[in-house]
Simulated assay, not measured.
Amino acid sequence: MHLNRKAICLITALVCYSATWLVVAGQSRTTLPALRQRIDRELNQQTGVFAVAFKDLTTGNELLIREREVFHAASTMKTPVMIEVYNQQAQGKLALTDSILIKTEFNSIVDGSPYTLPATSDSDSTTYKQVGSKRTLASLVYDMITVSSNLATNLVIERVGAPNVVQTMRDLGASDIQVRRGVEDTKAFAKGLNNSTTAYDLMVIFDKIATGQAVNAEASKAMIATLLDQKFNDAIPAKLPKAVKVAHKTGSINGVRHDSGLVMLPDGRRYVLVLLSKDITDDKAVINAYATVSAWIYQFVTQG
């Protein structure tokens, strides 16, 4: 009888220990509200205004912070422009093999007056050496995304038309993105006629690309392949495992730093993450904060 009582006590202790362990283990799992608070705290340490949009394409979970606030789009607008190229190709209005004459002079949307795109303000120097020659539309789209070429962007926008880009964004459900003009149109800038976006809208279009609904499945697959070749990888991808692939587009101007894209895990799971900012004062610190936030999102998605 004495031994049975010991056995019962031992079993009871083991059950209590197991229950306690399960509670502790359960508490170690990060909830979506807890993740949001953690991200808020991290970004609030920086000077500036920040927006976050995260969507797990497997579970449908979303984390949204200032997702509808309007930001200068900077180079994130190049993703909508790429979508419109594929849209017009699907409609038979152009072909990716079309030849485009390389030039540096464009017309302001304000009054049609000419302005010249300077190589000194562009991350791409190669295309400027090709003025007077021709390049395929496909190659310009590739440079527009992967090295964020402003010259390639202006040539592509001139070909497809900014109003058409906006209409396609509306058709996809992105109600606030505005692509009004090319880059370095100083007269337009002075009048506040800028390209703008919200984190929510960028989340919407990357969701469409991920699910094959941006034009069609074939076009979406091609766009993902281009986005995967992004050369600026110091934000969303920076602290992720190398096996994780990120198809993304960055953007930055003075006081602004963005990253937006599709994160693809080796096991097939995917999620969209958009990080936007304005009025920032420490660009490097913001980039590091973005990389940290991205790592936390990844940990949330992959937690057991």
Score class of each variant (00 low, 15 high):
Leu265Val: 13
Pro266Leu: 09
Ile236Phe: 05
Lys242His: 09
His258Pro: 04
Gly255Asp: 14
Asn288Ser: 15
Pro237Ser: 03
Thr292Gln: 14
Asp282Phe: 01
Asp267Val: 05
Thr292Val: 14
Ala247Arg: 00
Phe232Cys: 02
Gly261Ala: 00
Lys278Thr: 11
Ser294Gly: 11
Lys245Cys: 06
Glu218Trp: 14
Ile224Arg: 11
Leu262Ser: 05
Ser220Gln: 09
Lys245Ala: 15
Ala222Gln: 15
Ile287Glu: 13
Thr250Trp: 00
Ile236Gln: 01
Val263Tyr: 10
Ala285His: 11
Glu218Pro: 14
Val274Ala: 02
Tyr290Ala: 05
Asn288Ile: 03
Thr250Asn: 08
Gly268Leu: 07
Leu262Val: 04
His248Ile: 12
Ala291Asp: 07
Met264Thr: 09
Val286Thr: 13
Leu265His: 08
Gln230Arg: 06
Asn254Ile: 12
Val244Phe: 13
Ser277Arg: 02
Ile236Thr: 01
Leu228Arg: 09
Asn288Glu: 14
Asn254Met: 06
Tyr271Ser: 02
Met223Ser: 08
Met223Arg: 06
Met223Asn: 12
Ala222Asn: 15
Thr250Tyr: 06
Val263Phe: 07
Asp234Val: 05
Asn233Ala: 04
Leu273Lys: 09
Ser220Thr: 10
Gly251Thr: 01
Val286Glu: 01
Asp283Tyr: 10
Ala222Arg: 15
Gly255Cys: 13
Ile287Trp: 02
Leu240Val: 07
Val263Leu: 10
Asp259Lys: 00
Ile280Pro: 03
Leu240Met: 07
Ala219Cys: 07
Ile224Glu: 13
Ala235Thr: 09
Met264Phe: 09
Asp259Thr: 01
Thr281Pro: 06
Asp259Ala: 07
Leu228Trp: 11
Ala219Val: 03
Thr250Leu: 10
Ala289Ile: 01
Leu240Gly: 06
Val215Pro: 13
Thr281Met: 11
Ile253Asp: 14
Ser277Phe: 10
Ala225Phe: 07
Asn288Tyr: 13
Asp279Cys: 07
Leu265Met: 14
Asp259Gln: 00
Ala225Lys: 15
His248Trp: 00
Arg270Cys: 08
Asn233Tyr: 00
